[in-house]
Design a binder for these strands. Structure first.
Length: 421
DNA sequence: TCTGGGGTCCTAGGACCC
DNA sequence: TCTGGGGTCCTAGGACCC
């Protein structure tokens, strides 16, 4: 048995915890660079504001309807997520943190009435964190996700909790579920399924799994089996080591000058290096890429990338920044308005297995390791920006727009919530 | 003016091995 | 007359997730 606990409108709910006057009011949270809508309270959904809508297109309407608008505040959401996961992990022997706002719980062999048990969990998570959650329970992950979705839509007699096994008729329910409501099926596959006469979740469940495998591959075959209640996707307790790390951003304004781009790319390389070290990994290569805006058809488009490979896998910021600069020099072309850039570390392995080449002194590796450890310690203790590479701060033109960002209430002493009595 | 960021898995096809 | 069989590794592209 699996359960999936999913935070309701997570980012919007995080903002409301610290501004409770927004309860019952429409709230939206925007993507980085205040680009498009990525989270909506139920009231905002009711107003017809769509997921992914570009903010500049709904700005006027949002103001008119009194919608509270926020920039993304990942420091806050990440910390609130940890709190929710911490509470949830007390209620199952094994859990899998699936995303920032979702957690699978292993309920195999649990003898209780799981609906009542989960209703308690919902109450306690709300008490401890302020975040409302919904829980779906079923014999497979795919059905648990579906049960969760149905609970969120208000289809459960037990409010925020739905145990798939308590449904009077699974067939009736499945017949009413559109294909792209299923976990693992998006618009493209849904359309392709339509062309072969499959129009709802029941028809998919009753299709021939081997045929589905031929048409779509093993992933679709698994979905069919999971809809039948045969579990094919196990709980993953230990998150597997990362295979690649990407740091990229859209810019607050379009960039045309090399030095502005170079500052941005320095920042991305430094951030990627930090991520690498935090996970005790090293990379065998670095790819830097730049691109113009695909939406701007009036101006010439250009995008390109450059990859450097390292003789010895590294997680040294200076080395990564250096190769990012060289890559950028190779691909930068004058005369374009760049909208976005990024640094990708595509080929990772554990830092512990890194070997010096025959002609390299182990000394250099030690020195780099000590320097990076000092850098990370200082930045952790005194704030992220305490020590940076000079080329990162030469320009700030690339900084993203964050017009509506709330304070980092839970992670920064200077931004604690203040209360007036 | 203005449209996010960070990932994974699977498959097909080519290169190469013995 | 007419050219095997079995395998691995790598990459690009397409699909998906949140």
């Amino acid at each position: 048995m699996f359960a999936i606990a999913d935070c309701n409108n997570f980012y919007a709910s995080c903002e409301r915890v610290f501004q409770p006057h927004l309860n019952g009011k429409p709230v939206v949270v925007l993507s980085n660079n205040d680009g498009c809508v990525i989270a909506r309270s139920n009231e905002a959904k009711t107003l017809g504001i769509k997921m992914g809508a570009p903010y500049f297109k709904i700005e006027k309407y949002a103001k008119q309807e009194g919608v509270a608008v926020f920039s993304s505040n990942y420091a806050l959401y990440g910390d609130m997520s940890q709190r929710v996961m911490h509470v949830l992990s007390r209620y199952a022997p094994n859990v899998e943190v699936y995303s920032i706002d979702e957690c699978f719980l292993d309920f195999s062999g649990m003898p209780y009435n799981l609906t009542d048990y989960c209703l308690d969990i919902c109450t306690i998570v709300k008490q401890c964190t302020g975040i409302p959650i919904s829980i779906g329970i079923a014999p497979t992950k795919t059905l648990a996700k579906l049960a969760n979705r149905l609970a969120k839509k208000g289809c459960s007699p037990s409010g925020p909790v739905l145990d798939w096994r308590t449904l009077p008729s699974a067939e009736t329910v499945l017949e009413s579920v559109p294909l792209d409501d299923l976990w693992g099926i998006s618009r493209r596959w849904s359309e392709k399924l339509n062309t072969i006469g499959i129009h709802n979740a029941l028809a998919l469940r009753d299709s021939n799994p081997k045929e589905m495998r031929q048409h779509f591959g093993v992933v679709m075959e698994r979905i069919v089996m999971e809809l039948r209640g045969i579990s094919c996707i196990p709980l993953e307790e230990m998150p597997p080591a990362k295979k690649q790390i990407l740091t990229s951003r859209s810019f607050g304004e379009k960039l045309t000058v090399f030095d502005d781009l170079r500052s941005a790319v320095t920042h991305f390389a430094a951030r990627a290096a930090e991520k690498l070290r935090r996970q005790n990994l090293a990379t065998q290569a670095l790819t830097v890429f730049i691109q113009t805006s695909p939406f701007d058809s009036s101006r010439p488009q250009y995008s390109n990338s450059a990859t450097t490979e390292f003789d010895i896998p590294t997680n040294d910021s200076a080395q990564l920044i250096n190769s990012a600069h060289h890559g950028l020099q190779r691909i930068f072309r004058k005369g374009f308005s760049y909208q976005r850039a990024g640094v990708l570390l595509p080929d990772l392995l554990p830092a512990s297995v890194v070997q010096a080449t025959l002609f390299d002194s182990a000394n250099n590796l030690d020195r780099s390791e000590q320097l990076m450890a000092a850098l990370d310690t200082i930045n952790r203790r005194h704030g992220k920006k305490s020590i940076r590479y000079a080329s990162e701060i030469i320009s700030n033109k690339w900084h993203m727009r964050q017009q509506f960002k709330s304070p980092s209430y839970t992670t920064n002493w200077r931004e604690l919530l203040t209360i007036q009595i």
